[in-house]
Design a binder for these strands. Structure first.
Length: 882
DNA sequence: TGAGTCACG
DNA sequence: ACGTACGTGACTCAC
């Protein structure tokens, strides 16, 4: 059977424009609307498999509707240029897809769609209309269905007459009556004032149509309503007329002309490539997609050095700088095998398989020679992997991964191929395209491996000067060379040192927790009256809300929410809630911290070697994985006991923990220059108590624990970029009350208020914010017209300088501390960093002296308007060092 | 693979 | 009116 798809081009594109971030390609062309439109187009082509397609656009500003009502669409904001300029690109895309598009002077896209759907319906087509506009529901029949965008761009609902009846209790043709009564502010259609969707639906149920309502004004409920309808009869009729889609538009083509024959990849992919729609390109497997590129890559010449030839290449190693790339068997460089090495001087690329490289004495010498400069991708990974092969390495002078991160920390991908692609350097396929992923992953060998690595070193070599220049242009070079590059070596040492774990103690804690879990499970089954999988939010939701009939507090996309926040609210009503909360805690402890950590212990040493990621977070913080040692429990005693398993690696050593007190609020005091906040810290006051005094207008003695708790939440809120809603959620109080707290906070600390306003202003001007050490975070959405996106960017603008400067400070302290430990010959070792805390292992006899030394270093990296304060604690385990 | 949940600062 | 606290990583379920 013939199937016609009619797409409301402007509606879908407009929707995409507001739903998606304002994407730009390398040439600065805005592409978000085209992207969303293309996504929808491809989805519809795949799912509907149409034989005929047409995309209708609106033509110009004036339509026949303006003749009847000159204010039609009168209150619309001007269409943004960033949107308008994307329309031609959409049409170009459609041409390449071989899809007809059409617009007609004086008519809207709706009318074209209406005319064609009517015609196709009569000729026995089945029709699907795609739009985000509810008005088009009037066109639905048994054979004309409508896909309406629900959320985002491609998430849609399908409407047929039955669905419209379910949702509104109306027949499709009554949609115009609905709009006649309620109007539509976005099109400036008046309707009847005071009549909204609820009233309109009620009236239509009884009287069928606008005319029916107008003929029976006496029977309408309520005096007010009678008056309003009577006074606005003309507007109601006019509104209905305006909402009526005109189905007799003169068209100079027939349905046959809309035949869709499928598209040619060769026609479509060049445009997708130009627009930089990588995922869509992948989807159609077009030229320039990774699969394609892997095949069509230009040849690269690489010298594969054989074991008996190494002597001939010693002179190559005399050059400086050289680019080095090591390929490993897996992501975790602590465990990975080394597969091969590539070296490049920019002209010539060498490849050695790992056995050959490992047996080459001159190579080992070159590696550890600090005078021989090495350019690299991920210095730390290389350094750790080499060290595990017994090789020292030094002289690393550039890291393209770190440079890329500093230039734009928000880029989700700092994979070498991504960095290159963003700078228009071709010739390097993505690892995924070469190696495959998941079950299809394969290892390369021989010439293939040699060539792939040659492409990588070559790419790094080309990128280095480009990135270095970008660093300079953005004043990031000092941060790069004086902080990020040095700290990468500190982190390498920390990771290699590892943390000793008391395996027996860990297993013992595991046993205790497992016993506890059994008790909890039994109790929950008893309270529920049945056995079920407590770990499944779905099953748990059914038990709580269907079986036990507890009130639904919150929903998620997929069903009932059973989050801790919800369970806490249910606790007064049913004992099961508290048990489940407790169960969840224990499951978490066993799964993530007992079994999770056991898996990560290296059998030969009993240590755990995390990896610190230096190029992940948007703010400049580190992150940690495999395992994450930055989120070991501390808040609740049951979990905190897990810290007992982290012990020193040598006899008679201790764990020493040094943490910054209120570093973020101190940074805020400094950045804002707020006198009162500065004074609070200078006087060594408890800042939350002080905030409570100011916000609640009481003396220190009058501050109750509740007041202090609330003040603390306000302080957190300030650091996060406050909103009344966020604070109200956190404190579980009405939004108005939260807003009042915030107002009083800003009254008390006007310098902070001023700072927040200024930083947002500056972000809007510059498009980025900076930390104390000039780290930048781009905020492309700070001027977005989408409220949510803009608000998020504004909160980020407030938070990032604070969180990021704190990150700068502790990183600088780490570099200095590492230097101090080595220069002054301490035996102690730095092991971990947890954002505002450094953890060392230290010989007993060094403990007291080191405590002072650490404090002095950590308190000194930057000069602030307030003192930095560091608390130091020591103990036999991490648990005791509190 | 994504969503939900929860551990940390 | 909009619908949110900032920054992470690991585990489990259900598709």
């Amino acid at each position: 059977m013939d199937k016609l798809v009619l797409i409301d081009g402007n509606s879908i594109a407009y929707r995409a424009f507001f739903a998606l971030p304002l994407l730009q390609n390398n040439k600065g062309t805005y592409t978000n609307a085209v992207y969303g439109f293309a996504m929808m187009l491809m989805k519809v082509l795949e799912e509907e498999k149409p034989s005929h397609v047409l995309v209708a656009f609106d033509a110009g500003k004036m339509t026949f509707r303006h003749r009847d009502y000159k204010d039609y669409k009168g209150k619309r904001d001007k269409t943004p240029d960033e949107f308008s300029e994307q329309i031609p690109l959409m049409k170009e895309l459609l041409d390449r897809f071989g899809i007809r598009h059409f617009e007609l002077h004086q008519y809207e896209a709706d009318d074209i769609i209406g005319t064609l759907s009517r015609k196709a319906d009569q000729e026995g087509f089945s029709v699907t209309i795609v739009t985000g506009d509810k008005d088009l529901l009037q066109l639905v029949t048994d054979k004309v269905h409508l896909l309406m965008t629900k959320k985002g761009v491609t998430d849609t609902d399908r409407y047929d007459p039955k669905k419209i009846d379910e949702k509104y209790g109306l027949k499709p043709e009554q949609i115009i009556d609905l709009k006649g009564l309620m109007g539509d502010p976005s099109d400036n259609i008046p309707g009847i004032p005071g009549v909204g969707e609820k009233t309109a639906l009620k009236l239509l149920k009884q009287f069928e149509s606008v005319e029916g309502v107008l003929d029976n004004i006496e029977d309408l409920p309520g005096k007010k309503l009678k008056e309003k309808v009577a006074d606005n009869r003309r507007d109601a009729v006019l509104s209905k007329e305006l909402a009526t889609i005109m189905c007799e538009v003169p068209l100079d083509f027939s349905l046959d002309d809309l035949k869709y024959e499928g598209f040619s990849i060769d026609r479509v992919s060049p445009l997708l490539k130009e627009l930089e729609f990588k995922s869509l390109l992948e989807r159609i497997g077009g030229a320039g997609s990774s699969a394609d590129e892997a095949e069509e890559m230009e040849n690269i010449s690489v010298k594969r050095v054989q074991p008996d030839e190494t002597a001939e290449w010693e002179s190559f190693l005399q050059q400086s700088p050289l680019t080095l790339y090591l390929e490993m068997s897996s992501e975790n460089y602590h465990r990975a095998d080394l597969l091969g090495v590539a070296l490049s001087d920019g002209e010539q690329h060498l490849f050695l398989d790992w056995e050959t490289a490992a047996g080459w004495e001159a190579f080992a010498q070159w590696l550890q020679d600090p005078e021989r400069e090495k350019w690299c991708y991920d210095i730390k990974g290389n350094q750790v992997a080499l060290r595990r092969q017994g090789l020292s390495s030094d002289g690393y002078s550039f890291d393209v991964m770190l440079a890329s991160y500093l230039i734009n920390a928000s880029d989700s991908a700092h994979q070498l191929s991504d960095i290159a692609q963003r700078r228009q350097i071709g010739g390097l396929p993505e690892d995924e395209a070469v190696y495959g992923k998941g079950a299809k992953r394969r290892q390369l060998t021989g010439q293939e491996l040699a060539e792939h690595l040659a492409r990588k070193v070559h790419t790094i070599h080309q990128l280095k000067p480009i990135l270095e220049k970008e660093l300079q242009e953005n004043h990031l070079d000092a941060l790069f060379f004086e902080l990020e590059l040095p700290i990468t070596h500190v982190l390498a040492r920390m990771e290699l040192a590892g943390v000793q774990v008391d395996r027996e103690r860990l297993q013992q804690l595991g046993e205790e927790l497992r016993e506890h879990l059994e008790e909890l499970t039994a109790r929950i089954y008893e309270l529920a009256g049945t056995e079920f999988n407590i770990n499944s939010p779905k099953q748990l939701g059914e038990i709580l809300f269907d079986k036990l009939g507890l009130p639904v507090i919150k929903k998620t996309k997929t069903g009932y929410s059973t989050s801790a926040e919800v369970l806490e609210k249910l606790a007064p009503q049913h004992d099961i809630a508290e048990e489940i909360l407790h169960y969840r805690q224990v499951v978490k402890l066993i799964g993530t911290y007992v079994d999770g950590l056991l898996k990560e212990i290296y059998p030969s040493t009993g240590k755990i070697h995390t990896r610190f990621h230096q190029a992940i977070t948007a703010t400049g913080r580190l992150s940690s994985s495999d395992p994450n040692l930055q989120n070991i429990p501390v808040r609740l005693e049951e979990g905190r006991r897990l810290r007992q398993v982290f012990v020193p690696s040598e006899e008679n050593w201790l764990i020493l923990s040094a943490d910054y007190s209120q570093i973020e609020l101190r940074v805020l005091a400094h950045l804002s220059g707020d006198e009162k906040l500065i004074e609070a810290f200078q006087k060594g006051m408890d800042v939350h108590t002080k905030t409570a005094m100011d916000v609640f207008g009481v003396s220190a003695e009058e501050v109750t624990p509740l007041m202090r708790r609330q003040a603390k939440a306000v302080n957190f809120g300030i650091v996060y970029g406050i909103s009344d809603y966020g604070l109200s959620q956190n404190l579980n109080i009405p939004r108005k009350e939260a807003g009042e707290f915030i107002r009083r906070y800003f009254d008390s600390y006007p310098g902070v208020k001023q700072y927040m306003d200024d930083i947002i202003q500056k972000a809007k001007q510059d498009g980025y914010v900076s930390t104390m050490l000039h780290r930048r975070r781009q905020l492309p959405e700070i001027n977005s017209r989408n409220f949510n996106r803009r608000s998020f960017a504004e909160r980020t603008a407030m938070n990032t300088p604070i969180q990021g400067s704190a990150a700068d400070i502790i990183k600088k302290a780490m570099v200095q501390m590492d230097e101090v430990l080595r220069r002054e010959g301490w035996k102690a070792r730095l092991l971990l960093q947890v954002h505002d805390e450094l953890i060392f292992e230290v010989p007993e006899e060094e403990t007291d002296a080191l405590s002072e030394r650490v404090r002095r270093v950590m308190e000194g990296p930057v000069e602030l308007a307030v003192p930095l304060k560091v608390d130091v604690n020591t103990g036999r385990t991490w648990y005791e060092a509190k």
